[in-house]
Design a protein around this nucleic acid. Structure first.
Lengths: 216, 216
DNA sequence: CATGAAACTGAGAGTAGCTCTCAAAAACTA
DNA sequence: TAGTTTTTGAGAGCTACTCTCAGTTTCATG
């Protein structure tokens, strides 16, 4: 009942309940993504063309576009928005909102990173290196932001379209993105969960009085 | 000494101190932008091609690209980053940081909007309507964010590359962007300075307890 | 002025992302 | 097995964008 989540860690011969059509679709989708990741690792992002991807994935170029609207989407498509939402809804309603955010964010990070560290690293690396990917990522994060708006509204009885809620949500996703870039820029040396924790602190309480001396 | 600011409200025959070359450059730059704005108003963004812009501006298409790296940049190029920075530096060093931000942001908004309301409206309209423009805008805002990082570091003796500073800066520009979109989405009915004020409140103190009932 | 260096421009060819159409092939349904 | 729907491949076409190169204009000399 959740094709998005099923679509990721893929052992080729499970999901017997789906029709052959669906299974093939999932398979080509993965083939395209795998081919893309491989080619990017070999040649870099810009040097990798859709034709090459299509060739290695053994589909036609038009098929690639039928599965992913843009080249950036092949790398980015985040299937965790619905998961995040689900997680968000599962929290007790009387939990203070900042706590909820912290919990859900941490959980999401844990999933996204632990699930496939290689991919997470490549993604964040591209996030820093390739402007087009960064832009696309910001786009998708603003979508996530809108989702947060809905969640906040649901829980606190606010108007999801109010300026305050939208700004708050935007600063959340923006901070998360910045943390990701920071992580990648420094060669993924830091513990991502720690970065996330510090990020949420800033968003909750503003800048701390002074930096606790930290030069690597 | 500030070509960026000089480049905007343009009466054709001032700036006598610049060489002929510079004056011509500024003139074609403006011609391209004017042509673009006009065409977009007539036909919309996507339907307007570079060739059309070049034709109306009476330059060759290649020249258009020599002046603006992408089509979106013709509409967006914000010449106020340096102004903002200057304004920021002009504030007394002992002023509390949030106050400084508020002052500078308001000033910037006042400039950007009052200076040419027509253009400000068109820009924010495109911001909402055209994904490519939105992306490009986000890109440029992240540049502005880096600038803020520098300013914060300068004033507070912090490391401009620290996670905390970067997250803080990002949430600032993100909030500003969201406010702009909110403004445009609601048909520019609201007072932009008021929106900005509310935005900064959220960023400073988080979400207010409850929405003071506001349905227009 | 005149002459040479430097910058600016136009023309055109080329790449690649992306869209669209149409006919063939595959998968589901009865 | 026959018929309907979905998926696919092939290819044409559009446009943003890059690059090169020759011709012109502006600027700084002697």
């Amino acid at each position: 009942m959740n094709p998005m989540t099923a679509a990721r860690t893929t052992s080729p011969a499970d999901r017997p309940q789906l029709g052959l059509r669906e299974r093939k679709k999932i398979k080509t989708r993965e083939a395209i993504r795998t081919a893309t990741y491989a080619l990017i690792k070999e040649q870099g992002y810009d040097a990798t063309t859709i034709d090459q991807i299509a060739e290695r994935a053994e589909v036609s170029p038009s098929t690639v576009f039928r599965y992913f609207p843009t080249k950036e989407d092949i790398v980015l498509t985040d299937e965790w928005d619905p998961i995040l939402l689900e997680e968000l809804r599962a929290r007790p309603v009387d939990e203070p909102w900042p706590d909820t955010v912290r919990y859900v964010m941490l959980k999401a990070a844990r999933m996204g990173v632990k699930d496939d560290l290689e991919v997470a690293r490549l993604r964040t690396h591209l996030l820093v290196q390739v402007p087009a990917v960064r832009s696309r990522m910001m786009e998708s994060m603003s979508v996530t932001g809108r989702m947060f708006c809905g969640a906040i509204a649901e829980r606190t009885g606010r108007d999801p379209d109010s300026l305050e809620v939208r700004v708050y949500a935007m600063s959340l996703v923006g901070g998360l993105l910045e943390a990701s870039m920071y992580w990648a820029e420094r060669g993924h040396r830091d513990d991502f969960e720690d970065l996330l924790d510090r990020t949420l602190n800033v968003l909750e309480h503003g800048l701390p009085r002074q930096n606790p001396g930290e030069k690597p």
